[in-house]
Structure formats: structure tokens, C-alpha cells
């Protein structure tokens, strides 16, 4: 269980997080979604003792992160954004040191290490130097390390950033498996598909505040069922419809081309956070590896390809 109570972080001239409150029950996979600089990593850093909150607090399984610091730290495992493994040590040495940091006995470390490496499919690499592992293996090892001491809570800070689509899906499967074992997971990501695929609930964060929070399905439904992306000049905008029929009947006045597709979580995100006209670099969408692709990408906005369908040519000019 994670309970965040008016957690705030101010830097000299910046309010990085503004009195955020949340309650995440045991076993939930909660995704914290937002563009770069929204306050995602700041939240995780404060929850995991890497950054001191300016005000407010949080409880991890009833332990106050500000008062019961060491007990609170024993409750979670952390997979940070940057790979922070000891590259010059072996896989097993990394896990052993982690086990010692978390008060595990030698016997416990040995037993758990064998289980956890098998769990993340790295059993064959026990004695390999970490620097010889691939990016995906390192990510899986970081997850294994975070799970070594069997924490009730797992913090994943952008766990698939920089990984290719296949490896990303492998990590997703692992995260699902961990959640199904009863672990509470707090995930930050700016890959919309990741949150949509994995999370029970999603919070949209913008400029240090939670804009909205709900299940991915409810957030999507608020936008409508179908969308049309219109490209006009160098601008892409999107219109939403309650039904496919309504969308198909849409009279696309003056548009050069447009694409019909299902509404996805990214639409909800853009609508809620007002990021519709931000440059694509502000907000990254993972490559639509399994949904097919759609045409109509432009410099403005970027949309996932859930159920997209090109309807080029169905335009009408004035």
C-alpha cells in the first residue's frame, strides 16, 4: 500500500511537485504518466529517500517515509531510470551486495538469487560481468535486484526507456508477472502504450500536479470511441466521435488527408494535459509494434496506432 499525502518539492525557482496526494492499494499496478519535467521522477525520488520532500509525506505499508525512514526503505525495491548496476562486478555479486544492504542472510541470498535469476531468465549469466550483458538483460537484472529482498512495493522509473520494441514487451510481461504475484507497483513512464497495457489505474501528471486519475478504459471512454487525425499543412489535429459510423460520416472539409482510428490513452492524455500542440519531442509514443501503423504522423502531436485505419482520399475540398 502506498499513501501519498500532499507531497511537495520546491527547488529554488521551480515547484517540481505541488501537494500531490494518492492512495494505491496493495497489489495495484499504478502508472504515473507525464511529459518530461512533469514531476514523475521527483515523486519516485522522494518516495524512495533519494530526495528530501519540501513538505508533505507518504506512507509505504504504513511506514512514514520521513519518520520511519529505514523501515519504509525495507518495504520497496527500486528500478531507477538510469542503469545503476556495478558494471565491473558479476550478476551474482550485484545481487549479493543488494541482499546484504537489505539485511538478508547468506543462505537467504543464495536461495533467493537462484530463484530470482530464473524468474527473469538470467540463470545462465550468474557469473557474467554486468558490462557484457545487453541493454534488455541489464534491465531485467535491475528488476531482479529490486525484487531480491521480496519487497511488497516495486518502484519502476521508466523501466523500458531506450529498449527496442521486442525487449520492451518482454519487460512488460515480466512486470505483469510481478504484479500478479501480489506486489504493488508504482510505474512512471512516458510511453503511453506501456501504461495502457500494464496499469490498473493511470494518473496524468503535468507541471507537478495530477491532472486526472482513473482506469485506462475510463480515461479513453471520456474522449469517445473513434478518432480522426487530420493533417492540414504541417498541423495534425484530432476529432473524436462516439461511434465509428459518426466518424465515417464526418465531412472533412478542406483536409488533404485524414486517418480513422480507435481512441487510445494518448488521446486522453493530450486532451487532459493540453499537450495537443506541443512538439512531438515533448512527449514520446512507443513504436506501435503490434497494432499496425497509421499514416499521418507530423511534427505536431504523435499518436499511437490502436486500430488505426487510413482513409486517404475520402476528403472533400471547398
Amino acid at each position: 500500500m502506498i499513501k501519498i499525502d500532499k507531497l511537495t518539492k520546491n527547488y529554488a525557482t521551480l515547484e517540481a511537485l505541488k501537494a500531490v496526494s494518492l492512495h494505491i492499494p496493495k497489489g495495484e499496478l499504478f502508472a504515473y504518466l507525464g511529459p518530461n519535467g512533469a514531476g514523475k521522477t521527483t515523486t519516485i525520488r522522494m518516495l524512495t529517500g533519494l530526495t528530501r520532500p519540501t513538505s508533505g509525506t507518504a506512507f509505504l505499508n504504513s511506514y512514514d517515509i520521513r519518520k520511519d525512514v529505514l523501515s519504509a526503505k525495507q518495504q520497496y525495491g527500486l528500478v531507477p531510470q538510469a542503469v545503476n548496476l556495478d558494471q565491473e562486478l558479476t550478476v551474482s555479486e550485484n545481487l549479493k551486495i543488494h541482499g546484504r544492504l537489505y539485511r538478508m542472510t547468506r543462505k537467504n541470498i543464495q536461495n533467493r538469487m537462484s530463484d530470482i535469476l530464473s524468474y527473469v531468465e538470467l540463470s545462465d549469466y550468474t557469473d557474467a560481468l554486468v558490462r557484457t550483458l545487453s541493454g534488455g538483460m541489464k534491465r531485467r537484472l535491475m528488476i531482479a535486484r529490486a525484487l531480491m529482498h521480496e519487497p511488497a512495493i516495486l518502484f519502476l522509473d521508466e523501466p523500458t526507456v531506450g529498449l527496442d520494441a521486442n525487449i520492451r514487451r518482454k519487460v512488460w510481461a515480466l512486470i505483469k508477472k510481478i504484479q500478479q504475484s501480489g506486489t504493488t507497483i508504482f510505474l512512471t513512464t512516458h510511453y503511453i502504450e506501456e501504461a495502457e497495457f500494464l496499469a490498473h489505474r493511470v494518473a496524468f501528471l503535468a507541471k507537478g500536479s495530477i491532472v486526472t486519475m482513473d482506469t485506462p478504459r475510463n480515461l479513453i471512454d471520456r474522449q469517445g470511441k473513434w478518432a480522426i487525425d487530420r493533417i492540414s499543412g504541417d498541423t495534425l489535429d484530432t476529432l473524436y466521435f462516439a461511434s465509428r459510423k459518426e466518424a465515417e460520416n464526418f465531412n472533412a472539409n478542406g483536409d488533404v488527408q485524414y486517418t480513422l482510428r480507435r481512441v487510445n490513452l494518448e488521446d486522453a492524455f493530450i486532451a487532459m494535459t493540453g499537450k495537443k500542440t506541443e512538439p512531438a519531442a515533448e512527449f514520446t509514443s512507443a513504436p506501435p509494434s503490434h497494432h499496425g501503423s497509421h499514416k499521418g504522423h507530423s511534427a505536431h502531436g504523435s499518436h499511437g496506432g490502436h486500430g488505426s485505419q487510413s482513409v486517404h482520399g475520402r476528403h472533400k475540398t471547398h
Binding site: 533519494l50 526503505k73 556495478d86 544492504l101
Partner: peptide, 14 residues
């Protein structure tokens, strides 16, 4: 460089 210090900061050690 390796960011290992974060692992120590997050661990339940004084």
C-alpha cells in the same frame, strides 16, 4: 558515472 550511489541511498542503511 554508474549511479550506484542511488542504490545505497535507497537502501535501508544509515
Amino acid at each position: 558515472y554508474w549511479h550506484i550511489f542511488e542504490e545505497f541511498q535507497a537502501a535501508p542503511i544509515s
